[in-house]
């Protein structure tokens, strides 16, 4: 069959499939819809939920990013940080949807325990400011949650203290500058193939600063690295080139004498061995040729 026909047929089939996925309805039982969170809505639980989310959900849903409405289209799974999704679903509805799945979304009933499911939901709710914890979720410990807005972050490297300092610039609800405390920040640095985390979810102190110990990164040849600081909810981020440590000089082994170098970089021991052996042997050979000459000198004249 012609390739072009194949392509047309395959793409129609996949379009049909996507359409059918969208057309399906969620199957949520009434009991599920009425369920309340059975885990506490605490930071520890949210962190556990985040780990499960990153393992089982992120591959399709991506990062949770706070936005008014879902900004992704199929086949990319919706952004669960969208306020529209968060407000439209009760905890129980989230539970039912994750448990039973729909179309491309697999059912997680068998894969995750009820507690794990609730932990994921607890994490999902962190991106919904208007969320009111219910059931067991009501926090037992009083955590001061920063209520203002983070405007920006600035990363610097404190050479003397050997630590990264991420300064949060925030305003309170009234719009006045303030120190953002207890805000979780991730710090990553850029490598050739993407970002590597230096620290994740470190909380800011009372001065609105996040202090992260020096992890000993290899700087580039000018002594700089590219770091990316972001709030844990990914609302604000900043990527920046900062001076870090002394410049890294690529000391190519080919600039030294080595077995794999060029002829000009022959190791001395090798050169000495080679030359002395070859010289020794050839001196002996020339000596033998000289003997031929001596024999010739002794001929009968």
């Amino acid at each position: 069959m012609h390739t072009i026909y194949k392509l047309v047929i395959y793409s129609s089939i996949s379009l049909l499939w996507v359409g059918s996925v969208q057309a399906q309805n969620w199957t949520i039982s009434e009991e599920e819809r009425a369920m309340k969170m059975t885990v506490e809505y605490t930071e520890a639980i949210q962190t556990e939920g985040k780990a499960i989310f990153e393992k089982s959900c992120k591959m399709c849903h991506g990062d949770l990013i706070v936005s008014p409405v879902n900004d992704r289209v199929l086949p990319i799974a919706p952004n669960l940080g969208a306020t529209s999704i968060q407000s439209a679903n009760s905890d129980g509805e989230f539970y039912g949807k994750i448990s039973n799945g729909k179309g491309g979304m697999p059912p997680f009933k068998a894969a995750l325990s009820p507690d794990d499911l609730w932990k994921v939901i607890a994490y999902l709710r962190t991106s919904y400011a208007a969320y009111v914890p219910q059931g067991a979720a009501a926090p037992s410990e009083a955590v001061a949650i920063f209520e203002g807005t983070i405007k920006s972050l600035t990363t610097t490297f404190d050479t003397a203290a050997k630590q990264f300092v991420v300064q949060l610039n925030a305003v309170d609800l009234a719009g006045n500058p303030t120190y953002a405390m207890n805000v979780k920040v991730d710090l990553l640095f850029k490598t050739s193939f993407g970002y590597l985390p230096v620290a994740k979810g470190v909380k800011s102190n009372s001065k609105g600063q996040v202090l992260i110990a020096d992890p000993n990164i290899q700087p580039d040849s000018t002594g700089h690295i590219i770091v990316k600081a972001q709030t844990a909810d990914l609302a604000v981020s900043e990527e920046k080139v900062i001076a870090y440590g002394s410049p890294w000089v690529w000391d190519s082994p080919l600039n030294h004498r080595s077995l794999w170098g060029t002829s000009a970089n022959t190791p001395i021991w090798l050169l000495a061995t080679y030359l002395s052996v070859v010289l020794g042997v050839w001196i002996t050979i020339f000596w033998a040729i000289l003997q031929l000459f001596r024999i010739w000198m002794l001929r009968e004249r």
Partner: peptide, 27 residues
């Protein structure tokens, strides 16, 4: 090479061959 087989020529010949025979083993 004007070989006449004088004792001197033989002496040089034997010694040279002997040295080369030893030399050729490592080579």
């Amino acid at each position: 090479l004007g070989w006449v087989g004088t004792p001197n020529q033989y002496k040089i010949l034997h010694r040279t061959i002997r040295v080369l025979l030893v030399l050729i083993i490592p080579v």
